[in-house]
Design a protein around this nucleic acid. Structure first.
Length: 217
DNA sequence: GCGACAG
DNA sequence: ATCTTGTCGC
């Protein structure tokens, strides 16, 4: 696969790939397995990538993989997919259960060029994907207090995602489409993945493994 | 020039 | 992301 080495090349690649994003769900999209992907940092250039696959209905963990790697691309808001993609793809490759949906720890279309990490993962693999971020990249009005309440996430006068309250009274999470799924479905899946805590189980588990790898071998 | 800026 | 203890609350 082609990989940029400079900021300009990275931006150009995103501009080119963004045209391939599909923001609708196939009529036969059945989500039985969901993968959570996350990256942890041991040092400035040593990373641990995690891919955890859950049964979407029971939220039972079916498989989980942790891989370590090094990275040379620096963290730049808007380009951080180039820092995390390589490790995540390696982790995804080693998983034995093929996921029907990828949940990225970050943005999808809610990105300056409408091509965040979730879009990169989706377009690269062809697997439906969504982004669930803890912080917003864009403006939004506070959603209602109750779990399930949501409001538009707006960037440049364009709706790029949604602020979604996953639990009563907690800070909302920011959901945006990555690829091959519509926003309503994306939000419904996030709610199903977060029956008890603010963050979806996919993110929680991946994050735990990520930190475990960072402190262990 | 100044402030914003996923992880 | 990461540096970091106890503590208040359901």
């Amino acid at each position: 696969m082609e990989w940029p080495r400079t900021v300009d090349d990275a931006v150009a690649l995103q501009e080119r790939l963004r045209t391939q994003v599909i923001t609708t769900s196939a009529p036969d999209l059945h989500i039985n397995t969901v993968a959570g992907l996350d990256v942890g940092y041991r040092s400035n250039d040593t990373v641990a990538g995690v891919c955890v696959v859950f049964d979407a209905k029971t939220l039972v963990v079916l498989d989980e993989v942790v891989v370590e790697d090094t990275t040379d691309f620096p963290y730049i808001a808007g380009l951080f997919a180039f820092r995390e993609m390589p490790v995540l793809l390696r982790a995804l490759d080693r998983v034995t259960v093929v996921p029907d949906l990828l949940v990225a720890d970050g943005q999808g279309l809610a990105h300056p060029r409408r091509f965040g990490l979730a879009c990169h993962l989706g377009v690269h693999t062809g697997i439906p994907s969504i982004g669930v971020a803890k912080n917003a990249m864009g403006r939004f009005e506070e959603p209602g207090h109750a779990r399930g309440s949501m409001s538009d996430l707006v960037m440049d006068d364009e709706v790029v995602g949604r602020a979604l309250r996953t639990q009563d009274g907690v800070k909302p999470v920011f959901v945006s489409v990555g690829h091959k799924i519509d926003l309503d479905r994306a939000c419904a899946e996030v709610l199903r993945l977060a029956p008890r805590y603010r963050l979806p189980e996919t993110t929680r588990r991946a994050d735990t493994l990520t930190k475990q790898a960072a402190s262990t071998g």
